[in-house]
Computed example of a mutant assay.
Amino acid sequence: MLAERGVTMPVIVLTGHGDVGIAVRVMKAGAVDFLEKPFEKTALLASIGVAFSRLDNSDARSLREAEARVRVAVL
């Protein structure tokens, strides 16, 4: 799993040979989406939008955690 290796980037799986079992596994592992070829351009763009939202949320959460650590260190 990517998270176990320290990879925190959102993942979108694009495949030409997917099945329900694989789709369930990757989604449970935290993938943004599982798209099977041929896929709609709008579906890919929507998934990319969700991925960027996750990055923004992650960045905001990391900033809040860093600020909290600084406040604790100052006390």
Rank of each mutant, 00 (worst) to 15 (best):
1 M>D: 12
1 M>I: 13
1 M>S: 15
2 L>K: 12
2 L>Y: 11
3 A>D: 09
3 A>C: 10
4 E>P: 04
6 G>M: 09
6 G>I: 07
8 T>G: 05
8 T>S: 08
9 M>T: 13
9 M>S: 15
10 P>C: 08
10 P>S: 09
11 V>H: 01
11 V>K: 01
11 V>M: 05
11 V>L: 07
12 I>N: 00
13 V>N: 04
14 L>G: 07
15 T>P: 00
15 T>R: 02
16 G>M: 11
16 G>W: 06
16 G>S: 08
17 H>Y: 11
17 H>W: 08
18 G>P: 05
18 G>S: 08
19 D>I: 01
20 V>S: 02
22 I>H: 02
24 V>D: 04
24 V>A: 03
25 R>Y: 07
25 R>N: 05
25 R>E: 08
26 V>M: 10
26 V>D: 01
26 V>Y: 06
26 V>G: 00
29 A>V: 03
31 A>R: 03
31 A>I: 07
32 V>Y: 03
34 F>D: 01
35 L>T: 07
35 L>N: 02
36 E>H: 06
37 K>G: 00
38 P>Q: 11
38 P>G: 07
39 F>M: 07
39 F>Y: 12
41 K>Q: 10
41 K>Y: 11
43 A>S: 03
45 L>A: 01
45 L>C: 06
45 L>E: 12
47 S>Q: 04
47 S>G: 04
47 S>N: 02
48 I>R: 01
48 I>V: 15
48 I>M: 04
49 G>C: 04
49 G>F: 07
49 G>H: 10
50 V>E: 05
51 A>E: 04
52 F>S: 11
52 F>E: 14
52 F>K: 14
53 S>A: 14
54 R>V: 07
54 R>M: 09
55 L>A: 06
55 L>Q: 09
56 D>E: 15
56 D>V: 11
57 N>T: 10
58 S>H: 13
59 D>P: 02
59 D>I: 09
60 A>Y: 04
62 S>Y: 11
63 L>P: 06
63 L>C: 06
64 R>M: 10
64 R>V: 05
64 R>T: 10
66 A>W: 11
66 A>K: 13
66 A>I: 12
67 E>T: 04
67 E>W: 11
67 E>L: 12
68 A>Q: 08
69 R>K: 15
69 R>A: 15
69 R>D: 15
69 R>M: 14
70 V>D: 10
71 R>N: 12
71 R>E: 14
72 V>Q: 13
73 A>D: 06
73 A>T: 15
73 A>Q: 12
